[in-house]
Amino acid sequence: MSDRSLLEIDNVQTSFRVGDSYYAAVDGVSLNVERNEVLAIVGESGSGKSALAFSIMGLHNSHKTKIEGSIRLNGKDVNHLSTSELNKVRGKDMGMIFQEPLTALNPLKTIKDQITEALDLHTNFSAKQQNERALHLLNEVGIPRADKVMNQYPHELSGGMRQRVVIAIAISCDPSLLIADEPTTALDATIQSQILDLLNELKEEKDSGIILITHDLGVVAEMADRVAVMYAGQVVELADVMSLFKQPKHPYTRSLLSSVPSTQDEKDMLHVIQGVVPSLPKMPRTGCRFKARIPWMADDTHEENPELREVADGHYVRCTCYKHFYFPEEEAEKDVAAHRE
């Protein structure tokens, strides 16, 4: 554990109650985040990436969710805190940015009230100091005419402005960890790049760590230092951003990358992953969880109990099937080429 270490997630399992049984949506995830680092968590709906983020923040409904394992923020296990102790950490040491700026703000409260609420809880500021700080924050996240916006309501602001307010709330007490759950998915491209720039600046300035949850690989390529790819509740690949994009290893990572339409290459057809993401109760619990999506791979290419292994410096992959993986399209092309010769 280095001094730069900020968050250590160790073997976290988050299970939801469906009927009478619990099903793990996050299944044994271990990750760490350092200061001034952006860790991206990528995956499709049902991969467990948002469930993990909500587990870190303790936002799941405790009656329907079980969270096991340890989540240590600055050395303190936040998973085993009482709600009132957790409330001293939330908003102060860790903040969260949500996907929908439209619904992430209380429609009946002014922007000022929504920002000062956090300051009121975590600082000894007087009302005047709170106001000054709120104004300062709005300026910091790039909101023009901040003094006017202070007294406005969410419905009076555009989507991009609302997301800036959500960020201002999240950073109001200078948290060391920021969790951003699809922060730009609901925004236009030009606004998206502005918000990403803003997050980058804030990270540098405050030496904080960011967990960026997204399904958008373009956003990952532009923002992340390291990337964890999740499938069916597990991390299947973890690497620094350059290795992940240049030498992706796990079949799921490679499939995802080749299913994104790019503005450069002129592929006519995109790669399609066979089958669907299994629903929570139907998720395979043994063997390689991605096996059903790559049925052309022989059974013996998979491991019986796949584990996340370091295959290069800082590059981790789950299951041995990556060593032999190929796309069926490529194989077909090779056949054609072989015939010609």
């Binding site: 909500f54 923040m57 303790g58 936002l59 709600t83 009132s84 957790l86 409330n87 001293k88 950490v89 939330r90 908003g91 102060k92 903040g95 969260m96 949500f98 996907q99 929908e100 619904t103 992430a104 703000l105 209380n106 429609p107 929504q114 609420e117 956090a118 809880l121 975590h122 959500v166 709330i169 999240a170 109001s172």
Partner: peptide, 13 residues
Amino acid sequence: KEFISTARAKGVP
């Protein structure tokens, strides 16, 4: 609603 999560994430009791 999501803004309730926002409130909890702020540490509101």
